[in-house]
């Protein structure tokens, strides 16, 4: 409970909410942490609000859900209205400013802003690197995962994909570096 780091990622269906949670949880696990993640899935795969819970801890995790997040990542406007109840004093909030325009409700959390959609599209010319930009930003806060460790974990998780497409490795690395640098603590 108290010594577990709780993460919520929320956004629109199809934005890759669950993959972000899976990648961060598995990366932590590959670095020797206990980790669990679960999607909060709705009946529609697309068109609905999608969210995922991830927990990282030094000891086994009993239940995949929790009350309040230590890190909350909002990828779309609708996600904000739905998930306020999971915020507590001190929750780190990251928002994808490309889709979340109204930050008024989040003021007291001093949200960290990143336009991951634009970076992926214009800077990296690959919209699918969006997830990696967000993951890079998250890396500043998740305890127990170093940037190097995260890169090593990606090598394992994406071993097959990287073998087929060596460019992807470089691109992912670039993307999470950008995210990491932009949101530095």
């Amino acid at each position: 409970m108290a010594d577990t780091y709780n993460i919520i990622i929320s956004g629109e269906g199809g934005q890759g909410v669950l993959s972000i949670a899976e990648i961060i949880a598995q990366a932590a696990w590959l670095q020797g942490k206990q980790a669990v993640c679960v999607p909060y899935f709705s009946t529609e795969k697309r068109g609905g609000i999608s969210m995922a819970f991830a927990q990282i801890s030094d000891r086994p995790i009993a239940f995949p859900k929790f009350r309040q997040a230590d890190l909350w990542v909002a990828l779309s406007e609708r996600a904000v209205t739905r998930l306020e109840s999971y915020l507590k004093a001190g929750t780190t909030v990251i928002v994808n400013s490309h889709l979340v325009k109204d930050l008024s409700k989040l003021e007291s959390w001093q949200p960290r802003i990143i336009d991951a959609t634009k970076i992926a599209k214009e800077q990296l010319h690959k919209p699918r690197t969006f997830n990696m930009v967000i993951l890079g930003a998250m890396l500043n806060f998740v305890p127990g995962i170093s940037k190097e460790g995260f890169a090593a974990a990606l090598d394992k998780q994406f071993a097959d994909k990287y073998a087929r497409d060596p460019e992807l490795k470089k691109l992912n690395q670039q993307a999470f570096e950008i995210g990491y640098e932009l949101i530095k603590k």
Binding site: Q26, C37, K65
Partner: peptide, 9 residues
């Protein structure tokens, strides 16, 4: 559904 969909060790 939680046990079904959660990922862990």
């Amino acid at each position: 559904g939680y046990l079904a969909k959660m990922l862990g060790e």
